[in-house]
Amino acid sequence: MWEATISCNSAYDGLFFYAVKTTGIFCRPSCKSRVPNRENVSFFSNATNAHKAGYRPCKRCRPDLKSIKTFDPLEKVIEDIKQIIEEKYGQKILLDELASMVGVSPYHLNRLFKNRTGNTPRMYLEQIRVSKAKELLLTTNLNSTEISFKVGFQSMSSFYHAFKRRTGLSPSQFQAQYFKDSANED
């Protein structure tokens, strides 16, 4: 069992679980978490016994779920990051802070997010901010300066560059184009 644990052998998933005394967590043999010290490991024939012994399930490998195929821990990280960005887009958000919120390194988060979504977290944040800015330009009387700071940009120049990069238009051109198109429809 120890050999299966240190080699992260998925062939043993469901046959036994291991728990780490120092963390209070139990895992599947295939878990990619750091290899614990042998003296801190206990083995259990099922997740219920590990839970009864006072261990909580690992958030990475989710040994509490019947089938690992139903849970992709990396997809959960992506969903969590998207939710955080969508809720906090108006605030200053640093990659280090995002990474610590979901428990991964900034490098790993950036690479994982880009692999799964095609965007870095920063690009996704910019996309959300520009989308919110477009909405505000069309539904409020706020000017571009007010909107840029409301959606979280730190300067007017970064707002204009991001807006133009995403839409091909400046905020005022976007607004004029929309209202021109709306007038032509009437």
Score class of each variant (00 low, 15 high):
96 D>E: 06
111 R>H: 13
116 R>Y: 11
94 L>E: 15
161 H>F: 11
73 P>I: 07
2 W>M: 00
103 G>R: 04
117 T>I: 05
145 T>K: 13
74 L>K: 09
43 F>A: 03
98 L>K: 02
56 R>D: 06
89 Y>R: 04
117 T>L: 08
51 H>M: 13
76 K>N: 11
141 N>E: 15
3 E>A: 08
76 K>G: 08
13 D>V: 02
12 Y>Q: 03
26 F>H: 04
158 S>Q: 09
104 V>W: 02
133 A>W: 14
39 E>A: 10
82 K>L: 10
3 E>M: 04
56 R>H: 08
143 N>G: 04
10 S>Q: 02
110 N>H: 12
79 E>I: 15
15 L>Q: 09
139 T>I: 09
75 E>H: 08
169 L>F: 14
85 I>M: 10
39 E>H: 08
178 Y>K: 04
59 K>S: 10
106 P>M: 06
68 I>D: 09
15 L>A: 06
52 K>Q: 08
119 N>G: 05
24 G>L: 06
77 V>H: 05
153 F>S: 10
147 I>P: 01
126 E>K: 15
155 S>Y: 10
58 C>T: 06
1 M>A: 08
141 N>K: 11
80 D>L: 15
89 Y>M: 06
106 P>N: 03
96 D>G: 06
177 Q>H: 08
157 S>E: 11
68 I>S: 14
153 F>A: 11
158 S>A: 10
70 T>W: 10
80 D>G: 09
21 K>S: 08
179 F>W: 11
123 M>D: 14
84 I>G: 04
164 K>P: 00
17 F>V: 01
7 S>M: 04
45 S>I: 14
11 A>K: 10
93 I>A: 04
156 M>D: 12
22 T>K: 08
127 Q>Y: 15
20 V>N: 02
172 S>R: 12
70 T>M: 13
112 L>E: 11
144 S>H: 07
182 S>K: 15
139 T>D: 03
35 V>E: 02
153 F>T: 08
92 K>T: 13
129 R>H: 11
93 I>S: 02
68 I>K: 13
117 T>W: 05
121 P>V: 12
